[in-house]
């Protein structure tokens, strides 16, 4: 009998090879531009402007140094300060709300949650323009605090939704065991719920940081001299030579790449949850 058993493996291996090719192609599509831009960020101008040097062979830190001297050093510092403030503000405000959504049944809960989801979708950049008028009056214009407050508005719905889903994933029985053995709600939260949620909350904080770090429109509208890094790139670095721009993109993606590596486990589930 000419068994299908013999032909099946051949087709199977052919499929495997084609499939592997597609996987490699997909990964290359994502990785190649990142690698190239990083290589160019560190390449000498001679290598970069030589049309024969597709992959630069000589590397230097001078592009980064020139960029930092242009004002990127301060802008980077500003970005870090704004991002940290945003994380602190949005967690102070958002964590209790997330806990309330996760652990209480109350009137109007569904509508409130829907409102938060709606606000998550709201194009927050539009608030920047009218905010300028208010900020001028309050003396917040061109301040890092002002940018952080605007970024907090953008991050807050995300923080509420994500912390809520993190708290939901802590089994309620563990909390109830806390109550039964004599803890009150506050103690239960700090001794049981919070420690169990810590890895997830850390990941959420990282994403909040990145959200602020990456935001450009509000930062560019609300600042003039105290630029954050993306705003600085948009307004100043675009006039610089190409390799300086690549240096700028390297500094921009560096924290993102580090954080992706640390928190990669949470990336898919987090976006999966918060965009639903």
């Amino acid at each position: 009998m000419p068994g299908p058993g013999e032909s099946a493996p051949i087709r199977y291996y052919l499929f495997k090879i084609v499939f592997a090719g597609i996987v490699i192609l997909s990964c290359t599509w994502i990785l190649l531009p990142i690698i190239i831009s990083i290589l160019y960020a560190f390449s000498t101008p001679q290598d970069f402007y030589n049309p024969k040097e597709v992959i630069p062979l000589h590397f230097t830190l001078s592009n980064i140094q020139k960029l930092l001297a242009l004002g990127a050093a301060r802008a980077t510092m500003n970005s870090i300060i704004v991002a940290i403030m945003t994380v602190i503000f949005s967690f102070i405000l958002g964590l209790p709300a997330g806990y309330a959504f996760a652990r209480f049944a109350f009137k109007g809960k569904d509508s409130l949650k829907l409102l938060i989801i709606g606000l998550r979708m709201f194009p927050m950049l539009v608030i920047a323009i009218p905010l300028v008028t208010l900020y001028i009056r309050l003396g917040l214009n061109d301040t890092l605090l002002g940018v952080a407050l605007a970024h907090t508005t953008m991050a807050l719905p995300f923080v509420i939704l994500i912390t809520s889903s993190i708290f939901v994933s802590v089994p309620v029985e563990l909390e109830e065991a806390g109550y039964v053995f004599g803890l009150d709600r506050k103690q239960t939260f700090f001794r049981i719920t919070l420690p169990l949620s810590l890895p997830g909350l850390t990941a959420a904080a990282i994403f909040t940081f990145i959200m602020s770090w990456n935001e450009v429109f509000m930062a560019a509208v609300l600042t003039l001299t105290n630029r954050t890094l993306p705003a600085f790139i948009l307004t100043s670095a675009m006039a610089a030579p190409d390799i300086i721009k690549f240096a700028a993109s390297f500094i921009m993606i560096l924290p993102a790449l580090i954080f992706v590596f640390i928190a990669r486990k949470y990336l898919v589930s987090m976006w999966g949850i918060t965009v639903k």
Partner: peptide
């Protein structure tokens, strides 16, 4: 992980 790297990359970058 590779496919989701761009999630954290800003539009400017």
């Amino acid at each position: 992980y590779i496919l989701i790297i761009p999630l954290t990359i800003s539009d400017v970058a």
